[in-house]
């Protein structure tokens, strides 16, 4: 009986890889362009901003919190970088972008952790505020940024891999060590698992969670650099549609792990799945709006299969 359930568990965790492979084969048969090297590189380079934001969301969610404002922070930071870079120079721009991103992250942490507002409510309001701010700064117009470094990051390749993918992989390495191997990550897991037990064990309840929000802000700053590179500038509200993708990537990540916990490598896998799906469906000619429906249904499916509490949940 025990062996049986173990085997079942292993099969369950393998199913997603087999499914992914099958889907890739179907895409490749329907449109051979899908497996051409240049298309695979396109998928990789488009993944970078989503991956960075999803890592941020994963670290916040690990501690039992949530952040809907990450897409807003990314957009706000991108506009700040561009406006300041055009006014002064790139270094000032990057510094400004980093500061606003960390500041909004800190405010999220402050409202959720210190004040005690429900994370969804606080961050949904913060999302609208940052979207407002990014339109105020850009006056609603698309912004251009011509800088060799930004262009290089968005459009060139190191060897055959896009530069921003290398950048995202580097951050992935750092995040992997920080979350899966470092004390900080263990504390976040403990706080997400059982906050009272963690407190009794001597973990500070507030500081790591606020730090997680600020870390998410930093990751959004990195994402905004990649995005500015790809777009050679930024169009206000360009990130709005990415909310679902970040949530879905993190949920997929937790559902593929054996103990159903949120983790960085799983999130990365989730991002890859999202990238393959969007790209593949576009290539076989499915209108983009169908993609949103598929994503909504996927979110429900993933959550239904992973939730198993016994009593009605209240906010």
């Amino acid at each position: 009986m025990k062996n049986n359930s173990k085997l079942k568990g292993q099969l369950k965790s393998l199913i997603i890889y087999i499914g992914l492979l099958l889907i890739c084969i179907v895409f490749a048969i329907l449109n051979p362009t899908f497996i051409s090297p240049s298309n695979l590189m396109t998928i990789l380079s488009h993944m970078a901003p989503l991956a960075l934001m999803s890592f941020g969301l994963a670290s916040v969610m690990m501690a039992g919190d949530f952040d809907l404002s990450l897409v807003g922070i990314t957009g706000f930071s991108a506009v700040t970088i561009i406006v300041l870079a055009n006014q002064f120079n790139l270094l000032v721009g990057l510094l400004g972008g980093l500061i606003v991103a960390v500041l909004v992250g800190f405010l999220n942490g402050f409202f959720v952790v210190k004040v005690g507002i429900h994370p969804w409510l606080a961050t949904i309001a913060m999302m609208r505020m940052t979207f407002g701010l990014e339109q105020i700064l850009s006056k609603g117009y698309a912004q251009n940024l011509n800088h060799p470094f930004i262009y290089w990051l968005g459009h060139s390749r190191i060897g055959f891999i896009p530069a921003q993918t290398i950048f995202a992989l580097l951050i992935f390495g750092v995040m992997y060590v920080l979350i899966q191997k470092h004390k900080f990550g263990y504390h976040l897991y403990a706080l997400g698992g059982n906050r009272i037990a963690a407190q009794i064990a001597g973990i500070r309840v507030q500081k790591p969670r606020i730090l997680a929000y600020m870390l998410a802000g930093v990751l959004c700053f990195f994402a905004s650099i990649c995005l500015t590179g790809t777009l050679s500038g930024y169009t206000p509200l360009a990130t709005e549609k990415m909310v679902n993708d970040t949530i879905l990537a993190v949920f997929i990540g937790s559902s593929v792990s054996k103990r159903k916990v949120i983790n960085i490598p799983g999130t990365f896998l989730g991002v890859i799945i999202m990238g393959i799906f969007s790209n593949g469906l576009a290539l076989i000619g499915v209108p983009s709006y169908w993609m949103q429906l598929v994503k909504g249904i996927l979110i429900i499916l993933v959550i239904v299969t992973s939730s198993r509490s016994e009593k009605m949940v209240q906010i």
Binding site: W120, W290, Q292, L293, G296, I299, I300, I303, S307, K311
Partner: peptide, 17 residues
């Protein structure tokens, strides 16, 4: 027994699409 936030944000996304 799902979190109302998650349920209704999912139905919001499905409804929108």
């Amino acid at each position: 027994n799902m979190n109302p936030f998650i349920v209704t944000i999912a139905t919001l996304l499905i409804g929108n699409s």
